[in-house]
Simulated assay, not measured.
Amino acid sequence: MPNKPTAFFAALLLLPALAACDKTPQTVTLQGETMGTTYTVKYLPPSSGKTPAAAKLQQQIDEALEEVNRQMSTYREDSEISRFNQAAAGETPLAVSADFAEVTAEAIRLNRITQGALDVTVGPLVNLWGFGPGKEVVKEPSAEAIEAAARVSGIDKIALSQNGTQAMLAKTENGVYLDLSSIAKGFGVDKVAATLEQAEIDNYLVEIGGELHGKGHNAQNEAWRVGIEQPNIVQGGAAQIVVPLNNRSLATSGDYRIFHTDAHGKRLSHIINPQTRRPISHNLASISVVADNAMTADGLSTGLFVLGEQAALKLAEAENLAVFLIIRDQDGYRTAMSSAFRKLVTEHKP
């Protein structure tokens, strides 16, 4: 599964330990690799002592993430999503796992909320512009090629149904290609969180490639906090704003890590606008979204990023979404936030 880029503006803000104390609980940190990126899990072992050993817990986490890849990685020819993409229209609908169905259903729901901006069927256009699994840098596609790819794109070209307890997925056109990378990494965060919950761990922070979910408190008995950093962090800038994550998730989308440059020197983002059928090109550098779960935050961050600054803020106000934007302008960068985001950070100042 490709690593959907996340903002270098979003990074874990580690709180300093002011003094050692025997009564201070010890934070356990687990790290590994998944979905073309890395993960970090921090947690406080519960006082019950029922938590598995760290090595055993990490094995359970790795197994949960491996299952997500087995289901939804377009880089694996034998994954569920690859088998669906290889299937022809008109064939018997493909039986899919409950998790695969859950992620697809959420992608369909978020497509409606974002007015079509999040579209997990634009894979043919993504591949055409050179951002697919092959990652081949190509010249701008012809109008005919773009039109051909667009004919097999669109959320209306997939059909998710339930046959008793079995979820089924079908396509209406040959060539329809499903890519859940804009939402599956967040789902991976949620699966890790569920693994920790099953181990009776109530205080933890999970991060996969910049997508996060926090619950409970850290060793200083404070809510887990994440710093969204200003763009000049690469020159040593300080955190722009601090977001508390108490049973909340944060995801960020941006266009600065994966892009091509065309013959005229114009940046072509890896994120395709389903309406224009072209890589997005606007002044929004990144957008961070806080939601109840990482899957939803992940999908919303992509959809709202496609919409651009004004449309994203308008939708965020209408839907009461907590979003924070970093915008390029002629003087460098500026920031904006929705009312829900402002309320979140002002009500939970340390």
Rank of each mutant, 00 (worst) to 15 (best):
D190V: 02
A53F: 03
V290M: 09
D119H: 09
A17H: 13
T104D: 12
A294K: 07
L128M: 11
V41K: 02
T335I: 05
L18P: 02
K215Y: 00
D329E: 10
E80H: 08
R112H: 14
A107N: 12
Q240P: 01
P279D: 11
A223Q: 12
V289S: 05
D119N: 15
P350L: 15
K50L: 10
E197V: 09
E173R: 04
L128H: 11
L245D: 01
Q26N: 09
E229K: 08
L118W: 06
T114W: 05
T29V: 11
L180M: 12
L57I: 05
A159L: 00
S281P: 01
V28R: 09
A291T: 07
I155R: 04
G303A: 11
S269L: 08
D78C: 00
K266Q: 12
S301A: 15
E140G: 02
V289Y: 08
A101L: 13
G299S: 12
V290E: 08
A193R: 08
N163M: 04
E347M: 13
Q58K: 14
T74R: 14
V120Y: 15
D78H: 05
D99P: 01
G303K: 10
R328W: 04
V243G: 00
K56N: 10
I155P: 03
S182Q: 14
E80T: 07
N163R: 07
N69S: 15
A170F: 00
I155V: 13
Q330K: 07
M337F: 12
A150L: 04
M295W: 08
T296K: 14
G237N: 05
G90V: 15
I201R: 06
L313E: 07
Y43V: 01
D78V: 01
K215R: 09
R267Q: 13
T34G: 02
G265T: 03
K135V: 02
N283H: 13
I271D: 06
D262V: 00
N273V: 04
V137M: 13
A316W: 06
N273R: 06
A117Q: 07
D119V: 10
D99T: 07
M35P: 02
K266P: 00
G186P: 03
L245P: 01
A148V: 12
L65W: 08
N3Q: 10
L14D: 13
S73Y: 08
R70E: 15
E33V: 04
H270L: 09
L212N: 06
V152Q: 08
N111E: 07
I233H: 11
